[in-house]
Design a protein around this nucleic acid. Sequence first.
DNA 1: AATGAATGAGCATTCATTCAT
DNA 2: TATGAATGAATGCTCATTCAT
Lengths: 212, 212, 212, 212
Amino acid sequence: MASQKSSSATTPQATRAPTAKEPKRKRGIARVAKLLDAGAAVFAEQGYRAATMTEIAARAEAPIGSLYQFFPNKDVLADALVARYAEHVEAALDRIRAQVADLDGSQLADRLLDVLVAHAAERSLALSLLDARWEQPGVRPGVLRESLRKRITEILTLWRPQLPEEQAEVMSVVLFQAMKSLVQLHEEKRYPGKAEAIAHWRGWVQRYLADA
Amino acid sequence: MASQKSSSATTPQATRAPTAKEPKRKRGIARVAKLLDAGAAVFAEQGYRAATMTEIAARAEAPIGSLYQFFPNKDVLADALVARYAEHVEAALDRIRAQVADLDGSQLADRLLDVLVAHAAERSLALSLLDARWEQPGVRPGVLRESLRKRITEILTLWRPQLPEEQAEVMSVVLFQAMKSLVQLHEEKRYPGKAEAIAHWRGWVQRYLADA
Amino acid sequence: MASQKSSSATTPQATRAPTAKEPKRKRGIARVAKLLDAGAAVFAEQGYRAATMTEIAARAEAPIGSLYQFFPNKDVLADALVARYAEHVEAALDRIRAQVADLDGSQLADRLLDVLVAHAAERSLALSLLDARWEQPGVRPGVLRESLRKRITEILTLWRPQLPEEQAEVMSVVLFQAMKSLVQLHEEKRYPGKAEAIAHWRGWVQRYLADA
Amino acid sequence: MASQKSSSATTPQATRAPTAKEPKRKRGIARVAKLLDAGAAVFAEQGYRAATMTEIAARAEAPIGSLYQFFPNKDVLADALVARYAEHVEAALDRIRAQVADLDGSQLADRLLDVLVAHAAERSLALSLLDARWEQPGVRPGVLRESLRKRITEILTLWRPQLPEEQAEVMSVVLFQAMKSLVQLHEEKRYPGKAEAIAHWRGWVQRYLADA
DNA sequence: AATGAATGAGCATTCATTCAT
DNA sequence: TATGAATGAATGCTCATTCAT
């Protein structure tokens, strides 16, 4: 007993980790998009734990069963969100890489800083998704950070080929942190000197790369 | 956070918000300290939502009823944690202010950066507590950030009296963000170039103040 | 993120299987008894899967939280039920063993058959609990059957010391099955010849032991 | 079982109970067979409650809609399964009846015992289907048991015409129970003395009839 | 007719908070 | 006053069944 169902106990099958189901009909495609948007909003606002599946479904104007049809559990939804966000950001970085030869230091700094800050709608999600405290080995956010840093390292190496690999790596950590920090500066509610501080931060990062 | 449901935040009713009860006897003082430690540990490890009052009490080896005796609800406990943390950090900043006249730029930078990074045990809590996403007006973390920035502004003004107030304010935002970022760099699990990146970041901030 | 809570993923601790909590105050003792009774009734009526914790709590006139206070999940409740039932039955068998020297074949048969049939209230539970289909290795019902058969084997060996161990074992399987069958004969709703069939079955088993 | 909720059982409303739809074309016939096989397998493995319509459809490689086309709800499917199983078993009993004149007691016992045990594939289903605890008046399993017992009574009367009707009835109950018990002995996972116990049981039943 | 996405009531379980002891 | 059992709303998730395509 003890769950006559979980044959997994008996048969240690692959028990493939559940994944998001691809919608097949167009109705489903629209709905999945809406669910992802709702998920992004709620995760961004409340954080992973505080976000409830019920609220996400409600905000997507979808019944709870529908949410579970596509995302069999909360983790899968979070992963899908990370994946969707990752696509945007990785694409943006790839675009920078393609043009890196034509950029000087402060231009490159600007372009990099824009990657995370550009879409206001996603800024808050970024904070949630790139949060260092998620660390559960193998879980998405950690993987995403790794991947983004690697891309930044590549960009730096392409930009200044004589830069030693190791130093590029260190710089990518610093730059990535600076990028996240700028998002934090943006996202914090409102404080004296906000606008100037943001400008200041940009200038600082530009100088960092110009000096490199 | 801080329970976005608690109508008290929304409706400033007569029912004054419950607050932590001051322990009177020394037995109580010790117990409160233990409860706060346990709370700090659990909040740091699991985050506000995932932390359970039961686990906090258990970790403090206190009965749950005792926890509620001093902290009538979870939010009050969180606020008390913020307050206690604030004391440490504000004291550290005040110590810097007292000596600011003797410090050059990179020394000042080092001292400031140390404020949040010094006690490894509290770093993780700092991340949780200073998280910009808590924003619910009137809730502690936001208040704390404000207060810390103000203190940094004072230090800067004391340090370079000719610095225009406005610029000091902007710099304090940047410096505070740099301080938090260093904690993030520290707290992230382990990544290539971690140690060097941390050193690099320190150097960068030192230069920032040296240039000022 | 995958559940920042389950530290079990990170730290492969003993994660001790949850067990029924012993009630400490008398109110609790009465309540636990009521919960077990309700659980027995519902499991007996509906089977493990169909039984709902909500109904069990309701039938015990206890709030659902109370049920979970003592039995942290459905399996634990089932196990506790098996354990409680096991005590009764094992005690009854032990009583037979103590007197086995004085019994002839048909008396022993009668005594054994009575073990499972005696308490009408528990008959239906017995059916549910001794159901061969529960088999999930290490789970209670299988263990219980094993233990009962072993006791019957002992009784037989004590009764007829010259009986080869192996044969006693086989006979215990047959007798145990005959005991369960008699319960089934009793529990089935109502059918022509029910009373006579039960008497007949008893006679048959008596002859089995008399022939031995 | 048979959904103790379905008001249809309680209130014999006008809305005639839905029944399995007869397939018309050969494609449908094959599909229904596959669905029944899948249903038998899943019910046998997991029990009525734990079995899910989705899994049954999946195992039959049929879309869920197709399953509902033929079996408008889970109960109807279960009933159809009972009916199909009943056909097999009743046919087997009828074959015995046709030859009963040529059989001696132990041969007849063997033939009867084989009826439920013969097809290993169906043994587990038998346990599920003949389970006395299904009792919901009018539901199939009870009806099936009745019908089988009646047939056994007939066989006995044909076999020994001088046997009083009443006694034949009682014997049929005993024999039927013995038949089910043998299935249980077979189906239990593995226990010391299993093979010998099964042989023993057969011998016992043979003697029962030989004595008659 | 065939399909599989959509639906939502229902289930096991958790946990902040209260209150009898 | 101190304690920990009691409470029940809320949560993540399932699945029989329906119905648009």
